[in-house]
Design a protein around this nucleic acid. Structure first.
Ligand SMILES: [Zn+2]
Length: 302
DNA sequence: ATTGAACCCTGTTTGC
DNA sequence: TGCAAACAGGGTTCAA
């Protein structure tokens, strides 16, 4: 799933490849019309065709392609959107939903298995991006900033970290990674964390994101729906994750088996030993309370 | 203000 | 064994 490191990796690649290039044609495949926001695909393509790419920015999980007419082409990959930079004659890519030909003989291909991704062309990119929190890899992000923005919420810290208005760019994977590194249980109410917790969490967030960036992103799950970079190659961070997707596997720190619970409807993997449950842990949905009665049958031969 | 459900879509898993 | 139904997945938006 594209989160901050996955979007940033693609931004850096595109910055190297397409700045100064002109969009010479634009095509949105039938059935993918929802990709385009605000206007029809035809109008979208009309606005895009002929424009040159002036630069690439990122804010949270949004990719911003600055155009030479002072407008911004804003892209959100959501769950399965990928941007590929291919020679115009390259073999087709599965789930291609839109194609943007460039003046260098290459094309940008938008692939998106689920069609959840969205694009806008706007005068001011901030308009389409809801009030986003600080950038976790910028100097503005400090333990104190984290405490002030997250520490008033009574919701589980996991849910608060996923709130893009608290902090921009964290998704389910990097949230689990950060909480594990910080040894904080995902269900801990954010307003009950102490300063020392926020110090560790701050460091854990940065470490997890940097690890993802160094590996060119995480590509978990089945191949088709994974994040890939502009050349179609997956990231390598799935080899480095310490929590996400590791349910039932031993914790790298203590060896206890990693558990998975639902927090705010999202699956969360954590170590029950390293990440101590809050005093009043919410009843885990995955653990129906069993009466003592089954003891009578526990040893029954099968 | 805060929380939870709905929604977007399709590959995968589960159940009959 | 086949097929159909349920589910998972994450971010955002809407509703309560
Ligand atoms: Zn552990």
């Amino acid at each position: 799933m594209p989160e901050l490191p996955e979007v940033e990796t693609v931004r850096r690649d595109l910055e190297r490849l397409v700045v100064g290039r002109r969009v010479v044609s634009c095509r949105v495949e039938p059935g993918a019309e929802r990709l385009v926001q605000l206007v029809t695909p035809a109008e979208f393509c009309r606005q895009l065709t002929g424009r040159s790419i002036a630069g690439l920015r990122r804010r949270g999980k949004y990719l911003i392609v600055d155009l030479d007419d002072e407008r911004a082409w804003v892209i959100h990959r959501r769950m399965s959107g990928n941007i590929l930079y291919r020679p115009a004659g390259a073999p087709p890519d599965d789930y291609t939903r839109a194609v943007f030909a460039l003046d260098d003989g290459h094309e940008l291909r938008w692939t998106d298995l689920r069609k959840f991704g969205t694009m806008w062309i706007v005068e001011d990119a901030t308009v389409v991006m809801e009030a986003l929190g600080p950038e976790p890899l910028e100097a503005e992000f400090t333990p104190e900033v984290l405490r002030q923005r997250a520490g008033r919420r009574a919701a589980p810290i996991k849910s608060v970290l996923l709130d893009q208005s608290v902090l921009a760019g964290m998704g389910n994977l990097y949230t689990d990674e950060a909480l594990h590194r910080a040894k904080i249980h995902p269900l801990r109410p954010a307003n009950r964390l102490r300063r020392a917790d926020f110090e560790r969490l701050h460091a854990g967030i940065i470490d997890a994101l940097r690890m993802g960036l160094d590996a060119r992103g995480s590509s978990l799950g089945t191949t088709l729906r994974d994040h890939v970079n502009v050349d179609g190659a997956p990231g390598r961070n799935q080899e480095t994750v310490v929590a996400y997707g590791r349910e039932g596997e031993p914790c790298y720190t203590c060896g206890a088996l990693m558990r998975r619970i639902k927090v705010g409807g999202r699956s969360s993997v954590f170590c029950p030993t390293c990440q101590r449950a809050p005093r009043r842990a919410r009843p885990a949905a995955a653990a129906p309370s069993k009466r003592l009665k089954p003891v009578l049958h526990a040893r029954r031969a099968v």
